[in-house]
Amino acid sequence: MDAVFFAQLLFNGLAIGLIYALIAVGLALVYGVLRIVNFAHGEFLMLGAYAMALVTPVLGLLYLPSLAVAMAITALLGVVMFELLFARLKETDFERSILVTTGLSIILLHGVQWIFSASGRMVDTEFGFAGVEIGDIRITATRLAAGVVALGAFLALWLILTRTQFGRAMRAISQNREAALMVGIPPRKVARNAMMLACGLCGLAGAALAPVYLVQPIMGQALLFKAFALVIIGGLGHLQGAAIAAVILGVVESLAGGFLTIVWQEAIVFVAMILVLLLRPQGLFATRIRVG
């Protein structure tokens, strides 16, 4: 096997895996805190990418400032959506929450498609098509940047969840809802913060993907289904599980893309999900099993 080729695939896979992780972690966070499966999560990714596409030319192609603006926009949208729609849902409205987020997903996707058309657009940044050489390995700068940004975002997320009051409140609610409510954690405020964080992370992922992928309205849905599978593999509402599964998937997909037919690259995650469902269904859903 060609070691350089292998290393190149590995790096590419890590970068894309970290982006997957940002999406999946947001989905898992919203499920953990709000008990909502957010079908519109992929659309926030798409909105992040479009925000990047619109903001970059205005900011003179500067990468990081554009990224920050895109992330802020999606985080703000997350808060708005929470206040408009999610805050009305009760915890027992599980099916209803799916219907509401499905409606939101339809509106956002077709709204963007209506305004900007279904065709894809390329996003240029200050890096252009420049690459970085590490030994014999060459990686495009935007891909490397995406990986570094995702790593930075994870570090920040970890600090928020472990070191800040509002992060600890989120963890408390997702781990033991009743106990958290009893010690007086305000559920609405925590839920709003979780939506802001999840949508911000997802928007960041979209913005980081924008220079690497083709930006188009349906980009969110394809990645959302992958993220669903990752969240199922990692355990519903389990952040680390989803993140680890995502990084592994990115690497495996990349390697499979290099050595197997393209067909397998897309199928891997769903095959893995089915295996997990078959092998440990109880483990997956243990926290929510009811009597009878």
Binding site: V37, I98, F228, A267, V271, M273, L277, F285, R288, I289
Partner: peptide, 20 residues
């Protein structure tokens, strides 16, 4: 056999498998 939440998730997983 699963609860209602899990049923929804499994039904999504099933359709994704068919799509795959």
């Amino acid at each position: 056999r699963l609860n209602r939440h899990s049923f929804v998730v499994v039904s999504i997983a099933f359709t994704l498998l068919v799509l795959t």
